[in-house]
């Protein structure tokens, strides 16, 4: 397996958010600021890599019929670890991300990679797949978060560059949908040109 291709596919060709449309809920829910998007992306990457590791190591020990529940328990454990650790050491980020942290467990991206990749590939490939897809996801969330923060609050990672408020709709629900729609359109255009 071309490990470079394996790692890099998660950034553009098979980007979780812009191409595969996986993990939509947190994508829309937490990207009110660039920092929140980045935080969530990294938390998800941690869970993705760890669960890929464990699944690729135990894949032959798990009977076919119970693989989904087993994967879920494994993923849920890492999500809880992230929850507890964040609560203890990054309480502000924890409050911002709210309910979306436990929801990492139902992020179709994580279960999807465990099922489609880690359960069928080697330890190394699974680690790189997890890293690539996760960081690609984080990149997408940070981009969307940055766009929404710039347009909606007139700031980037907390640094305000205008006085007062921006176009508020972008930090609210409708703006999330609309911004993401246009970003996907952009990615479509780019992918079509290079296809």
């Amino acid at each position: 397996m071309n490990q470079w291709k394996n790692f890099s596919k998660g950034f553009f060709k098979e980007n979780a958010v812009f191409v595969l449309f996986l993990g939509m809920c947190p994508t829309l829910g937490v990207t009110t600021t660039a920092f929140n998007g980045l935080g969530m992306g990294l938390a998800t990457t941690f869970v993705l890599v760890m669960s890929n590791i464990v699944v690729s190591l135990v894949k032959n020990q798990i009977p076919e019929k119970v693989r989904i529940p087993s994967f879920i328990v494994i993923i849920a454990s890492f999500v809880t670890i992230v929850e507890l650790t964040m609560q203890a050491y990054l309480p502000d980020l924890f409050k911002q991300l709210g309910i979306f942290i436990p929801l990492i467990v139902v992020n179709c991206l994580v279960l999807g990679r465990a099922e489609a990749f880690a359960s069928k590939n080697s330890f190394l490939s699974s680690v790189l797949d997890g890293l690539g897809m996760g960081l690609g996801f984080a990149m997408a969330l940070t981009i969307l978060g940055t766009v929404r923060e710039i347009l909606g609050s007139g700031s980037v990672f907390g640094y305000k560059f205008i006085a007062g408020d921006g176009i508020l709709v972008f930090v609210l629900a409708p703006g999330a949908f609309i911004a993401l729609g246009y970003l996907i359109m952009l990615v479509n255009k780019i992918n079509n040109k290079t296809a």
Binding site: K59, N60, Q61, P63, E64, K65, V66, P69, S70, I74
Partner: peptide, 16 residues
């Protein structure tokens, strides 16, 4: 892969 016998499934799920 391990066989999906009932006893295997129960043990694995329990262990996990």
């Amino acid at each position: 892969k391990k066989e999906s016998t009932f006893i295997n499934m129960v043990i694995v799920l329990f262990l996990v």
